[in-house]
Design a protein around this nucleic acid. Structure first.
Lengths: 206, 206
DNA sequence: TATGTTAGTAAGTACTCGCTAACATAAACA
DNA sequence: TGTTTATGTTAGCGAGTACTTACTAACATA
């Protein structure tokens, strides 16, 4: 982030974290696929060669970003999932926590979108996919709790409900990417969430 | 597509169309940002230099893909939107027409995702964004018709409903990208659509 | 049959990419 | 304090990129 302010010659771990943040910062402004090691070096105020003192190759940087993402987003979701005895309130908290996280880290959704279209055997994609699977699992568990509590339709398909949950967030994020970073997704949020709630509350079997 | 089968020396227009299809075909297999002019040339069975006989530069190819997309997807949606006197049935038809189109052209969502993260001033992104705006407009009109017909909640916010509609499709597409091209999104479709229907039918104002 | 146009090739341009090796120096430590 | 080690710079590589140029074969038509 703040290249010149921090002194030269920092410990490796600090530099690594700095570069991971730099990637996310750059991803908020340009397409992640076009971020070069030179870009990253400039962002942290080093020469391009210095990048490879801290990472064996470029892929390792991206893998580190994915790991940071998992270590940051999942605890956020986990905490929100257990934030209330009322499962629907917990779900609400997950929704808003996720959207707040995305707004504070605009590079994240672009990073994820980018990784998901990689060939299947890419380790970075596998890391991201695994995280999203865990996320989905958390959602399904909360939805099951809501069902046993009688808060949602007894015929609710939790997997579909989890897909729609993630889709509703994606729809909002896409809207934001369409209109540019200038516009906030704040006004849309309430409307979409209200719709999702009534979807799972009174589901009609097909 | 089929490089060797078609004879050499085709008219310019046919070649352009061939290359547009080649891009979409390649986008189904690799990330669109990594598609090179050499890749395209190989796919249509020409030399790399020949690509620039038909397009002034690479960006023009991508713009052509975006235009093909608009000229193909929007009529599909328009037709579905007017397919029934019953607005909700029309909406259903849009949903399934879109998903069928995506399944038949797996490169399309990846192309769109890729373009949306470009800097705002890119003409290709503007083209794609404009198409999605038109799409959203069509959805909102059908939702308004459903409201006057008394088929959905009178307090429904059409813009949020349109966002959730697109989000629900995106959620399904993302699921497919996660699990790889092997898995179909067919089984999930019905569940998600049922959820969306009950969302707009009985909306509860926040 | 001669001539201009169109659609192709092959080789080359200038440039950027990820990555490396040789050298420098600040910080940590015996 | 002198040595070592970790963190940096500089210069350069090989491979690939979009795009250009000089040239050629096929086709249409006067």
């Amino acid at each position: 982030m703040n290249a010149a302010t921090v002194s030269l010659r920092q410990p490796a771990q600090a530099r690594q974290a700095e570069m991971v943040q730099a990637v996310l910062c750059l991803a908020a402004q340009q397409e992640p696929a076009s971020i070069t090691t030179t870009d990253i070096a400039k962002a942290v105020g080093l020469s391009q060669g210095a990048v490879f003192r801290h990472f064996p190759n470029k892929q390792a940087i991206w893998l580190n970003v994915a790991q940071w993402l998992e270590a940051t987003l999942l605890p956020l979701v986990q905490t929100a999932a257990q934030s209330s005895p009322d499962p629907l309130t917990s779900l609400d908290n997950i929704f808003h926590a996720h959207l707040q996280f995305v707004q504070e880290n605009p590079g994240v959704p672009r990073f994820i979108f980018n990784e998901l279209q990689r060939p299947a055997d890419s380790p970075v994609k596998q890391q991201v996919a695994a995280m999203l699977q865990t996320y989905s699992g958390i959602l399904i568990r909360v939805l099951q709790q809501a069902k046993t509590a009688g808060q949602v339709s007894p015929s609710l398909d939790e997997r579909s409900a989890a897909t729609l949950f993630i889709g509703s967030i994606q729809g909002l994020v896409m809207q934001a990417m369409l209109l540019g970073s200038s516009t906030s997704i704040q006004p849309m949020m309430a409307g979409v969430w209200a719709l999702y709630l009534s979807a799972i509350r009174q589901e009609v079997t097909p």
